[in-house]
Structure formats: C-alpha cells, structure tokens
Simulated assay, not measured.
Amino acid sequence: MFWRKALITAVIHCLASCPRAFAGGEGPPTIGPGDGETPPAEDEILDVAPPQAANNTVISGWVYLGRFKADGTWQRPRSEDLIGTSPDELEGRPIVLSMDVNVRARVFVLKQQNSDGGCDIGESEVIGALESGREVVLTQITRFPLCDSYIWAEVRESD
C-alpha cells in the first residue's frame, strides 16, 4: 500500500506545481520557484517508482536522493541513513532505501535557468526501480547544476 500513497503524492504534487503540463501549456517541466504557484521550500523532484517499475529491478544507475537544504537538513530523503549527513560525506557509503525509487540512466539535465530562479529540466530514461528496504552503495554523488540542493547518486548493489 506504500506505493499507492507515494504515487498519489507524486501526482498531486505534479498537478499543483506543473500546471502548464496538464493544461496543454507550453514548456518543459520545471524545478524551483516556477511561476509562483509553489514556494521554493516546497519544490521537490518526486522521482518515486510507480508500481509497474518495481518489477523491473535494476541494481545500478542514478537515483535522486532528495533535497539538501542550506540549514543542513534533508527534504524528503530517500533513506533515513541520509539524515544528519552532508552530501559531501556520502560517497562510498551504503544506505537502505526508505521508499521505492526510480533508477535512471543518468541525472536530469539542465536546459536553462529561468529569470525567476526556476530550472527547465530534461528528464532521463528510467531503466528500472529499487524497492524500499534495498541496500545500495552510493558510488558517486552529484548536485544538480544551478539547483545544487537537488542531490543525485550513482548507486550499485551492496556487496
């Protein structure tokens, strides 16, 4: 039942923060302040795995870990193991995922930064998913360009 709540949360957030995509408007998805609909503190990449992806388990690729805020806290971390730890300290560490996540071929790409501080992004291909409770090793950590509070990790299966 966890996946249903995660999926519903993702859809609600997307409908609230990306109205152009659902109203036949123009433009790619955005991250950041956007058009004022959602304050920056609430913006988030909700890259949780949909139920059908959970059957296609992949053990290596790129995973969105969450947003690391200026005050040193994580917003919606994908693992409880991240709490209290800076992204700079994570490389090489194992973590246990606390939610199902998409595994992607690469990190999202920045198309442009908007005048309002938001970022137009290009999503990358979903190549599978990892289930909640799965242990992975964070082999590389990267921050999203210009929106560097969004933290991504290249992961592999724990030994």
Rank of each mutant, 00 (worst) to 15 (best):
S158I: 10
G27Q: 05
D35W: 13
A21T: 11
I151G: 11
R67H: 06
T142K: 12
D100A: 10
A21L: 14
E131M: 15
V107W: 00
M99A: 14
I121F: 08
R134G: 01
W62K: 04
E44C: 12
D159M: 13
L15R: 13
A23W: 11
I8G: 08
N102Q: 14
W3R: 15
T139C: 06
G72Q: 00
W152K: 05
V155I: 15
D88C: 03
T57Q: 11
P29G: 13
C14R: 13
K111V: 07
A10P: 01
V109H: 08
D88N: 06
I59H: 10
F22M: 03
V58A: 07
S124P: 01
P51R: 09
E123P: 04
N102F: 12
K111P: 00
V96C: 01
P77V: 12
T57Y: 12
W62C: 04
G133H: 06
M1H: 13
S115C: 02
V58K: 13
E80H: 14
R93D: 03
A21M: 09
I59Y: 03
A16R: 15
D120L: 10
D71Q: 03
G118M: 07
S124G: 07
Y150W: 05
V136F: 02
E135Q: 13
V155R: 07
E157P: 06
P145V: 02
G27D: 08
Q75P: 02
G92P: 03
A153Y: 00
A105I: 11
D81I: 05
C14F: 15
P94Q: 13
E37D: 09
L15C: 13
N55T: 11
T9S: 15
M1T: 10
V11E: 07
E131S: 11
A41D: 13
D120H: 10
P33I: 01
V58M: 11
I12Q: 14
E135F: 05
T142P: 02
P51I: 02
G32I: 01
L7D: 09
G34M: 06
F22A: 07
L15N: 08
D35Q: 11
T57C: 07
S17V: 11
E135R: 15
A16K: 13
T85E: 10
S86C: 11
S79T: 08
L15H: 15
E44I: 10
A70Y: 02
V101S: 05
K69T: 08
W62R: 02
R104Y: 00
E123V: 09
Q140K: 10
E157V: 15
Q140R: 09
P87Q: 04
A16V: 12
A41F: 15
T57W: 10
N56P: 04
D81A: 12
A6F: 08
T9M: 10
D148L: 04
W152M: 03
S149A: 12
C18G: 13
T139K: 04
D71A: 01
D43F: 12
C18T: 13
P33W: 12
G133L: 04
T142N: 09
V126D: 02
R156K: 15
